[in-house]
Design a binder for these strands. Sequence first.
DNA 1: TCTACTTCCTGTAGCGGCTACAGGAGCAAG
DNA 2: CTTGCTCCTGTAGCCGCTACAGGAAGTAGA
Lengths: 137, 137
Amino acid sequence: MFTIGKASEQSGVNIETIRYYEREGVVPKPGRSAGGRRLYSPNEIAKLRFVRRCRDLGFPISIIQTFLSLTEQEDRSCTEVKTLAESHLDEINAKIENLTLLREALRSLSANCDDGTAACPMHDALMKDGFGELISE
Amino acid sequence: MFTIGKASEQSGVNIETIRYYEREGVVPKPGRSAGGRRLYSPNEIAKLRFVRRCRDLGFPISIIQTFLSLTEQEDRSCTEVKTLAESHLDEINAKIENLTLLREALRSLSANCDDGTAACPMHDALMKDGFGELISE
DNA sequence: TCTACTTCCTGTAGCGGCTACAGGAGCAAG
DNA sequence: CTTGCTCCTGTAGCCGCTACAGGAAGTAGA
């Protein structure tokens, strides 16, 4: 059994964040020592690590909770997890696409600044009425 | 002069968001009608549009405020704007890179689910201790 | 002129996902 | 026994909005 500090080290989840996850019911409440300190089993630490990795992958907490509850009921949850992952993949693709558009827009605005004619062509372009709407979303 | 509803239409900024920008000092307080309603000049509406477009480009409010204050003092602020824009461009590139890594990680995890051997290979991979740390940040 | 409807006002609280305190208690080493 | 670390609870703040509630002002038609 490990205290919250060790659990944090091993899972890579910040101590405050671990307590936050507990408050929000993302992970179950751990046992306590005689002195009232949280004690984590290796299994619970694995769960925290799982949450962190899912967060790193960009999953929102709500979906991670679904993942964890699907995992509780051991029967054939793989396809459901896969479906969720793939719809998330679509979102990521959309984000990448938008960011790429945005990058091009910024690049061309910034490039205009090089000719040194106007006070600030970038600013002017963003102020003007006729400037096209960049982001689709 | 236009009421907040018209200003919202013309700038593309939500009414509530306009008031929020005013509270936060992003844009100056507009004049008021006899009855106490906000009245916007075309110039103020252009400013709102400017803020929205910068937000669309992913700039945080704090940077947009810098943009606007650089604009107030008309003297050669172009290079500063350009510098800010380019460091923002770097951030966008980093985001795209991370998302791309993330997409590959998700794809390969999801692909593993297809062979239908384990209960859920994706879940197992995320739980395991040895799984590499994906995201650099 | 009265009424119905729309727009606007202020103020406050909520969202997600943390992070940062304050003020105190437990615990191990020297 | 004291020092210093970790831990506890509870609360407030971060960003950039968004969504109310409860009321006042303005507009259009009968």
